[in-house]
């Protein structure tokens, strides 16, 4: 089921950023087990720079595990994961190199509650990138403005709403100037009216050409920004296609069943 992301018809939004030939992430025959449980089965995936991929599937299908393997929050036992030409092995140096280039967003935001919004954003640039504090704060302010909450910079995360916290989390990731962003169900823990404000920021990010891998159930978002939608079930990639084809003309029965469950209720 390999496909060429180039020359593909534009998705519903029509906003197509250039996708380069450069490979950002490469997964070759990746397997992962939790104890005896086989969570990821022979995953092959190539992500080009600038691509925006939405991964969906029923719960327990391994989609979160898959993207968590990409920055080594989970360890794979077999196969090869190469991010930015660095292979992820047990080598801590490599892992840290990859992690500073790959931003990640979590379902529960995971902001650091003991630090202000500003400190959350400047922590990694200062300590990992060795950026001077003033520069880090300037960068942080730029991204806080981009996610539209510069006025909250001196507050603590506990004083913000869920949507605001998730936007801070996006700003925090962007401050590291990542080359790839991973999203692990970023809107699942949010109230409906807050989902929109987070998705808006994510759409903006997509339009800026960020390489994105996004596990989400927001099919509207998938239609609007994805170049490719991947459907996973039982630890396997069942189907991948551009959103147009994926939603209107799903090939496998499992995909059809899944789509009917999430779209018609």
């Amino acid at each position: 089921m390999s496909m060429n992301p180039h020359g593909q018809e534009s998705s519903a939004s029509g906003s197509q950023m250039a996708i380069s030939d450069e490979v950002a992430i490469q997964l070759n025959n990746v397997h992962k087990w939790y104890g005896q449980f086989h969570v990821l089965k022979d995953i092959n995936l190539t992500v080009h720079r600038g691509e925006r991929i939405v991964i969906c599937g029923p719960s327990g299908s391994g989609k979160s595990t898959l993207i968590r393997c990409i920055n080594r929050l989970e360890e794979h036992q077999k196969g090869q994961i190469i991010v930015d030409n660095i292979e992820l092995t047990g080598d801590l140096k490599h892992i840290e190199l990859v992690r500073r280039e790959v931003g990640m967003l979590f379902q529960h935001f995971n902001l650091f509650p003991h630090l202000t919004v500003m400190e959350n954003c400047t922590l990694a640039p200062i300590w990992v990138r060795k950026m001077p504090k003033a520069d880090a704060e300037e960068t942080a302010m730029k991204y806080l403005e981009r996610v539209k909450i510069p006025e909250q910079a001196q507050k603590f995360p506990g004083q913000l709403s869920g949507g605001q916290q998730q936007r801070v989390a996006i700003a925090r990731s962007l401050c590291m100037n990542p080359r790839v962003m991973l999203f692990d169900e970023p809107t699942s823990a949010l109230d409906p009216e807050m989902i929109a404000e987070v998705l808006d920021v994510m759409v903006g990010l997509a339009e800026s050409g960020m390489t994105m891998l996004c596990v989400t159930h927001e099919m509207g978002f998938a239609r609007k920004v994805a170049n490719r939608v991947i459907f996973m079930d039982g630890g396997e990639i069942i189907e991948q296609n551009d959103p147009e084809q994926f939603f209107n003309n799903p090939k496998s029965d499992r995909t059809k069943l899944f789509l009917s469950q999430i779209l018609h209720h």
Partner: peptide, 15 residues
């Protein structure tokens, strides 16, 4: 501490 705090710190590249 929730596991997410460890994961967020790791994901930012902190040693």
């Amino acid at each position: 501490l929730p596991k997410g705090q460890y994961e967020a710190a790791q994901a930012l590249g902190l040693s």
